[in-house]
Nucleic acid binder design. Structure first.
Lengths: 266, 266
DNA sequence: GAGTGGTCTAGACCACTTG
DNA sequence: AAGTGGTCTAGACCACTCA
């Protein structure tokens, strides 16, 4: 069905081109052009596989220089809406392979945003040596670590346990931090940069230890979130969050970059 | 005198400036400059709050035009590594507020990538009216929907139930799709665009129905993923995935855009 | 070989913020 | 008032790919 459309358009040439939208907004020209073309694609006026006019033709149509058109088109291509290759023209991308993503937020902010009263308690805090009781595979044996255990509460009810190891070789300042006002996760977020982070999310049945700390019955479903953070190939921190299933959920919205762009004007 | 003050500031500023890296890669100039400055920031040679030389000075230092420097710096600012304002100079951003994200993938691809043998079975498939037994709050009462129930298996073992509603007003083609070779989630991903998607992830204890479908004991912890997909303000599909906790985990890596850029050369 | 996108330059004007 | 970033133009050259 797409093939027939393409053939027809190629035969007719410019005849099937959608009309050139007027540019009258206060935004920069390249933003208006980008938005106009994105809107054509999302509305279905330009369909997957369609060929776009080349930069020079578009420049004439919109009455701007080729550079300005190039900036708009290149940004759309970077966002995955268009496919471009030298000499091979510009096409509307076939599949929008934007992947679904789930933001993982700080629990304190989640509780506060939901209108709850957030509090936390430091349950454990000690400097330990890697391999001495606790083992962190990513870190060298014998390296100094700070071990933290922290309970997070929503209106006085426990919702999450945080079990964390921090590499003191990279974050020495944390040894002197009392965490009187700022919970460890927020302190780290504000003080330590990261390059990559790996997450694993599971559902687990609470064991006796977890049940006691969270005040729930053993066997209750809990959400387990593990995160390992690395900066410039050196491990920074490893953390394990355990949350009561009935009291906690991860949620969030993904928005395609194209939709974001469109919403700025509509 | 103003001139003297400016000269003094410039003298101090230039004295603490890190050396200008050589540009010798095969990449475009603006990519090399962008990478060089990003590396300075990540290595700590430029610290949070530091002021950068202005575009003209950088252009002279690197021996390129101001436009080329602008492109590099503007991209870094777009990625959040720099803060720029007119007349207010360019500064290294204080907090890297890159948020952690978890990609949510298709289960068939996860199983295959992990080396398992993926299969699925359509358990239910019927056209229903909204409000008639099934209720989809986002969709108008009386609208036609396709209800699907699908079991996903890894080497013959059930790992996930998929319960889905599809808005036939937007995706009429799906009424004729037999899903003989392609599971519903993949078909939808390849055929239907989306603008926004909302996710909620929970841990739940399996009820009797779920336990029977998944072949597990009631009470076993399961991961619940709900997704509601919207395109141009119209609901497209709503889906509920239920996965056995012991057999399924969400995992993925987040990489800061800056680190991505750096890794291209290192 | 010809056409397309990718990059770069030199110069210009404007909007905004600071001193 | 002056300096900064944001944008735009006209023109140029190159790399890549297609006919």
């Amino acid at each position: 069905m797409i093939g027939a459309t393409v053939r027809a358009k190629l035969a007719e040439g410019q005849a099937a081109e959608p009309p050139v939208p007027a540019l009258d907004g206060p935004d920069p020209l390249f933003v208006q052009i980008k938005r106009a073309i994105a809107r054509q694609i999302l509305r279905g006026e330009r369909r997957a596989g369609d060929r776009l006019p080349n930069e020079e033709q578009l420049a004439v149509q919109y009455g701007v220089s080729r550079q300005t058109v190039h900036k708009a088109i290149a940004l759309l291509a970077r966002e995955g809406l268009l496919i471009r290759r030298r000499r091979a023209d510009t096409f509307v991308a076939l599949g929008r392979q934007d992947s679904f993503v789930l933001p993982i937020e700080d629990i304190g902010e989640m509780v506060t945003r939901a209108g709850g009263r957030y509090a936390y308690r430091i349950l454990a805090r000690e400097i330990v040596t890697n391999g001495d009781g606790v083992h962190w595979p990513d870190l060298a044996q014998g390296a100094a670590m700070l071990r933290l255990e922290c309970l997070h509460l929503d209106n006085g009810t426990p919702v999450q346990i945080e079990r964390r190891l921090v590499n003191l070789g990279i974050v020495p300042d944390i040894a002197d931090e009392p965490f009187a006002d700022t919970p460890p996760s927020r302190w780290l977020r504000d003080h330590v940069p990261w390059s990559t982070a790996e997450h694993t999310v599971r559902a687990v049945n609470a064991d006796a230890n977890m049940a006691a700390q969270l005040g729930i019955a053993p066997g209750t479903a809990c959400l387990s979130i593990e995160r390992r953070t690395v900066h410039l190939n050196r491990p920074v921190t490893q953390v394990h969050f355990l949350s009561v299933g009935e009291r906690f959920a991860l949620s969030g919205a993904s928005i395609t970059s194209t939709a974001t762009e469109l919403n700025r004007s509509e």
